[in-house]
Simulated scan of single mutants.
Amino acid sequence: MGSVAIVTNDGFLLSSAPNFRDLGGHRTREGRTVREGLLYRSDALHTLSEPDLTTYNGFGIRQLIDLRTSHERDRLPDVIPDGAEYAAIGVQNAEAAGANFVDLLSDPERARAVFGDGAAERFMFAVYRDLVTEDEALQGYRELVERAAKGPTALVFHCSAGKDRTGWGAALLLTLLGVEREAIVADYLVSNDRQAATDHWMRTISADSGLPWEDIAPMTRVRADYLEKAFTTVDTVYGSFDAYVAEGLGLSQATLEEFADRMLD
């Protein structure tokens, strides 16, 4: 086994996957620290440049968790690190409108109906609600936590832009580890500085669909109130975060302890 790079979550670790970053380094309420080099979050991992591949393989990643839908995975297959286990774990209904942006936005009439006149913002709030309540999301995020607790590490999980599905996954994992909400929101908002590729893609789609950029813009960024929608939905539907974890996700106390023991110094 080669040497494993020691990294921080500052800066761009992979220029061709700009939202790839380490969840390590966060402090918990109990004064412990999330270990670095074990848990990475990312945007899409299908366009890694040749220079980045050496760096990517140097992180010692042994498990890659792909949160995208089957449509996305088939269209743009991941580059899997040397020796890593690959797991496709969707967290959205593959037939839901939001799961197939490319197909939906290629139909200008449907795109205007779904996203026009301020509807994109309402759509984003619905996405975050569904990431907490839908069966696919509950099953997928349960498996993400179980794999982080029990599977080989280091681990990377990702979606396409690495901001929404991955954003809630990171918020869930960090909350389970006892990181303060303020730090979790700050980590979540870092994605906004790493969306140049998403912007380029979405501006092209905007032009092709005939939708004004301001109608599409709410989907190209994360906002604190998007994440707050997920946490509020947790409280509304389950009564508390702990109840969401135990009853919604069905995670055992033993798994949570195993996860904390593995990830915290």
Rank of each mutant, 00 (worst) to 15 (best):
A5C: 02
N9M: 00
D10S: 07
S15K: 07
S15A: 13
N19A: 10
R21S: 12
R21T: 05
G24I: 02
R27Y: 14
T28L: 01
T28E: 10
R29I: 08
E30G: 13
G31P: 13
G31S: 09
R32I: 00
S42F: 15
A44T: 01
L45Q: 07
H46Q: 12
S49P: 07
E50V: 14
L53K: 15
G58D: 01
G60L: 03
I61R: 06
I61M: 12
R62E: 08
S70M: 03
R73G: 14
R73I: 09
D74I: 01
L76A: 08
L76V: 01
D78Y: 01
I80M: 08
P81C: 05
A84F: 04
G90N: 11
N93A: 12
A99E: 05
V102F: 10
V102S: 06
D103F: 01
L105H: 04
L105T: 11
S106H: 13
S106L: 13
D107I: 09
P108M: 13
R112C: 02
R112D: 04
G118E: 03
R122M: 07
R122N: 12
M124P: 02
M124R: 01
F125H: 12
A126S: 14
V127W: 00
R129W: 03
D130C: 08
D130M: 10
D130S: 14
A137H: 00
L138T: 11
Y141W: 06
R142F: 02
E146Y: 00
R147L: 12
A148M: 12
A149K: 03
K150Y: 05
G151W: 05
G151Y: 06
G162V: 08
G162S: 12
R165A: 13
R165S: 07
T166E: 00
T166D: 00
T166G: 10
G167P: 01
W168C: 02
W168V: 02
A170Q: 04
V179C: 12
E180M: 07
R181H: 15
E182P: 07
E182A: 15
I184C: 11
A186Y: 15
A186H: 09
D187Q: 13
D187H: 07
Y188G: 07
L189N: 12
L189H: 08
V190D: 03
V190I: 11
S191K: 06
Q195R: 08
T198E: 13
H200T: 06
W201L: 10
M202A: 14
R203I: 01
I205Q: 13
D208Y: 04
L211P: 06
L211V: 02
D215Y: 06
I216F: 07
A217T: 09
P218R: 06
M219G: 14
R221A: 12
V222S: 10
V222D: 06
R223M: 03
A224N: 01
A224F: 01
D225C: 06
K229H: 07
D235Y: 09
T236Q: 14
T236Y: 05
Y238I: 08
D242N: 15
A243T: 15
Y244I: 05
A246Q: 15
E247I: 09
E247N: 07
G248N: 12
L249M: 11
L251Q: 03
Q253R: 09
A254C: 02
L256E: 09
E257I: 00
L264W: 03
